[in-house]
């Protein structure tokens, strides 16, 4: 619908202006904080002093906060941990989920009704924090990065989304491949997956964001600060008032302003998501809806 239908009355000027203002405010509420954080992280000491804190209007670009940040271990190490958990976790999750979704999408596969019911039932209740904690510790996963991955490896919602999408693939396509002698694995690999790339990308993004944002499980299971993912480090600098690792760069006598370093930590936590997001965003509606309708 990109043309106004003929029967609809012309909007009033006031109504139109009101709507535009509202939509502008809503988008500004998202953009302004992001903008200000990134601008502040790139500001020099003079700019920050002049603004008296957070900077809104940029005056030149200064990378010293980032250089200083990456010159120490704390943040680089945390980013490394987060990258490993995100990449490893997403790979495991997406493999398990695609396989299970395909299995459950083929009518007549063994126990598929029971299994589907078991997956759907997880929407209604969580297992409870204490028993989960005792189980994960009991399995010896404490102080192991796997504790951030294994307990959340399979998400029922994502599984239902993929299954719903797989079920819409015409059966004739799969049957004709079978007649040509393709086994289940080949059907999955050469027909189903290529047809569902967009939805698989969305589900992968959901998983990846979950792992990148790992916080609570890290608090529960990782006691060694060297294992801490980026979210925990961000929290200790911003919300717990720990001093960020500011080192003076070669050739200067004072380290970059603390605020700029802090905002640089915020920025490196946000930026990976900002990079992936635009490529996947346009497929959200499709993915969320197939899942919502079936679930």
């Amino acid at each position: 619908m990109s043309v106004r239908p003929v029967w609809e009355e012309k909007p009033t000027v006031v109504g139109q202006a009101g709507k535009s203002t509202l939509l502008f405010l809503v988008t500004a509420a998202v953009i302004i904080p992001l903008w200000s954080v990134i601008v502040t992280s790139l500001s020099s000491r003079e700019t920050i002093d002049r603004a008296g804190g957070m900077v809104f209007i940029p005056r030149g670009i200064d990378f010293s906060a980032y250089e200083s940040l990456f010159a120490t271990d704390r943040v680089t190490q945390a980013l490394w941990v987060s990258f490993i958990v995100t990449i490893g976790g997403t790979a495991l999750s997406i493999t398990l989920t695609v396989l299970a979704a395909y299995g459950l999408s083929r009518p007549g596969s063994m126990w598929h009704r029971t299994l589907l019911f078991l997956f759907l039932l997880t929407f209604l209740f969580g297992p409870g924090l204490i028993p989960s904690y005792l189980l994960v510790t009991g399995l010896g996963l404490k102080d192991n990065l796997l504790s951030l991955i294994l307990p959340t490896a399979v998400n029922a919602f994502n599984l239902i989304v993929l299954r719903a999408f797989f079920m819409n693939i015409p059966g004739e396509l799969i049957d004709s491949a079978r007649i040509d002698g393709a086994g289940e694995w080949r059907v999955l690999w050469q027909i189903v997956i290529p047809l569902s790339k967009a939805v698989i990308a969305v589900v992968a993004l959901f998983y990846a964001v979950g792992y990148w944002n790992s916080f609570f499980n890290a608090i529960l299971y990782l006691s060694d600060p060297a294992d801490h993912p980026i979210q925990l480090v961000l929290r200790s600098f911003i919300l717990q008032g720990q001093a960020p690792p500011g080192v003076s760069l070669p050739g200067t006598s004072v380290p970059p302003p603390t605020l700029a370093i802090k905002m640089a930590v915020v920025a490196v936590t946000v930026i990976p998501a900002l990079i992936v997001y635009p490529f996947v965003q346009k497929h959200f509606t499709k993915a969320v809806l197939t899942g919502a309708i079936k679930g």
């Binding site: 398990l96 989920t97 396989l99 299970a100 395909y102 299995g103 459950l104 083929r106 596969s109 063994m110 126990w111 598929h112 299994l115 078991l118 997956f119 294994l150 490896a153 399979v154 599984l159 289940e184 999955l188």
Partner: peptide, 10 residues
């Protein structure tokens, strides 16, 4: 079915 087993196990 075999493919569902690992996820169901988790």
């Amino acid at each position: 079915m075999l493919m569902t087993a690992p996820a169901a196990g988790f």
